[in-house]
């Protein structure tokens, strides 16, 4: 299968099946990236496109985001979908701190990336969620289409597959 050709490892065949030998990093990253459970965290318009991604047509469950968990302790990923405002900012920080590691953040939509259409003339908006929490993938759009959100999740999976043990370098350059 095509998957076998892409992995960095050796396959030893013997009667009854085969054995796949690879690094621990490979398997741990493979398990983590294919089962990212998001936190239910929609703030405004982009949340509806996030629901559309979870609904029947685009269905991000195909990529492993099977269930949306309401509690941050049970979620891996936070998709900040919508405008971040001053009143909500401490709560976002607290939710991020409650997420159990390994945790990932996708800033979905122009508002979460940089303030978006509310960059000028708005006193209530925080210009980008990366002023509060570290972000892994930035997804522009107003709102981004569900296909774009799926692309962002795949980019995040690529990023996770490059992680190294022990610890995790957040500012790793992607090649």
């Amino acid at each position: 299968m095509a998957v076998i050709e892409k992995i960095t490892g050796t396959v030893e065949k013997f009667p009854g099946g085969g054995v796949l030998l690879s690094s621990a990093e490979f398997f741990i990253n493979w398990g983590r990236k294919n089962s990212l459970w998001p936190l239910t965290f929609g703030l405004s318009c982009c949340a509806i496109e996030m629901f559309s991604t979870g609904a029947s047509r685009f269905d991000w469950a195909r990529f492993g985001n099977e269930v949306l968990r309401a509690s941050p302790r049970q979620a891996d990923m936070m998709v900040v979908a919508g405008t971040v405002c001053w009143k909500m900012a401490p709560r976002i920080k607290r939710l991020y701190e409650q997420l159990a590691e390994p945790r990932y953040v996708i800033a979905m939509g122009a508002c979460a990336v940089s303030g978006g259409p509310f960059y000028y003339e708005s006193y209530g908006t925080v210009r980008g969620v990366d002023k509060l929490i570290p972000v892994d993938v930035y997804l522009p759009g107003c709102p981004p289409k569900p296909e774009a959100l799926l692309h962002a999740i795949l980019e995040l999976e690529k990023k996770i597959s490059k992680e190294r043990l022990p610890g995790r370098k957040i500012q790793e350059r992607t090649k």
């Binding site: 001053w86 960059y119 000028y120 003339e121 708005s122 006193y123 209530g124 210009r127």
Partner: peptide, 10 residues
């Protein structure tokens, strides 16, 4: 007369 530096003027 509301002044706020958070209100970035265009």
């Amino acid at each position: 007369d509301y002044q706020d530096e958070k209100l970035l003027k265009r």
